[in-house]
């Protein structure tokens, strides 16, 4: 082991690369990923620029879209469907779920497409393949923070300028502690599952259709359009397994003061997310060697 590490160090010092036919499961080259950090930053930049130069409203779209969506949800589920929001004002309630859900769903879908969608470039040049999923997660987190700021503005408006002020109890302390964890869990789940899907869809392309459907179901299985308090006891086991429930609920309890789901749920979700990202990276690592030949 010692001799191997020494060899890796010396090789890296001399920029020596050894290419061979053996595949090592756990030898993910993190240092190389760090060496390509400029490329990751440039891909993030490209992602933003390319996207907003093609839309009518440009960067404003990232702000308008969640507000519009929350509006639609509040009309359909709030007014028409009569689903309770635990007394929290509709717009605020749905927006709070959407901020993290949008992050998760966009990061997940884009990561799942990272190999098939970029097959051309991977056939022409080498860079560590994980560069692309990482740039996806980073660019989507930036959008998350933008939408979070919009949400905070809305929160202030509702708290201090409307009658529903007293019902909302934002907790600064919880905000500072839970937000990073919420982001980490959502990132790990989207990255882990995205990498798994990316690896599997290289060979079985029809699975990408399953993905969209799967996400739609997951939307309803997560308390975005209804509060956690309305989940019947029989379904608690299922919700325990859904790591996003802690994400949505943690976010709500920190910013709106709704009852917190409990530390044990949170820890379980965190562990599930770590497991997912671990398996995802391994599967991706296995497929990235040969996928150019399969795709």
């Amino acid at each position: 082991m010692r001799a191997y590490l020494k060899k890796v160090y010396v090789d890296r010092l001399n920029s020596t690369t050894v290419i061979d036919a053996n595949f090592k499961w756990f030898r993910v080259d993190w240092i190389e990923l760090w060496q390509f950090r400029d490329l990751i930053a440039l891909f993030v930049k490209k992602e933003f620029i390319a996207r907003y130069r093609q839309t009518i409203l440009g960067p404003l779209w990232y702000i308008i879209q969640p507000i519009l969506m929350s509006g639609v949800l509040s009309v359909v589920f709030g007014k028409l469907g009569g689903l309770s929001t635990d007394e929290i004002p509709h717009l605020l309630f749905y927006f709070s779920g959407l901020v993290t859900w949008t992050y998760f769903t966009t990061a997940f879908q884009l990561t799942a497409d990272v190999l098939v969608g970029n097959a051309y470039i991977f056939q022409k040049v080498y860079f560590p393949r994980l560069v692309m999923p990482l740039s996806v997660v980073i660019s989507k987190s930036l959008i998350f923070f933008t939408q979070l700021s919009v949400f905070l503005v809305l929160l202030v408006v509702y708290k201090f300028f409307t009658n529903s002020g007293p019902i909302i109890h934002p907790n600064i302390f919880k905000m500072l502690i839970l937000t990073p964890f919420v982001l980490i869990i959502a990132s790990f789940v989207s990255l882990g599952l995205g990498l798994m899907f990316a690896a599997v869809t290289v060979k079985y392309k029809d699975l990408s259709h399953v993905l969209g459907f799967f996400i739609q179901l997951w939307f309803y299985a997560t308390p975005i359009v209804y509060p956690v308090s309305k989940i019947p006891k029989e379904y608690y086991f299922v919700t325990y397994l859904n790591p996003l429930i802690s994400v949505i609920d943690g976010f709500r309890s920190a910013y709106l003061g709704t009852p917190f789901i409990g530390i044990s749920y949170f820890v379980t979700s965190f562990m599930i997310s770590v497991l997912l990202v671990f398996v995802g990276i391994l599967m991706f690592h296995k497929i990235e060697r040969d996928f150019v030949d399969i795709i």
């Binding site: 050894v18 290419i19 061979d20 036919a21 991977f122 056939q123 022409k124 040049v125 080498y126 060697r289 040969d290 150019v292 030949d293």
Partner: peptide, 8 residues
């Protein structure tokens, strides 16, 4: 970009 089946 791709890997050998044998050799190094």
């Amino acid at each position: 970009i791709t890997f050998p089946t044998e050799g190094r």
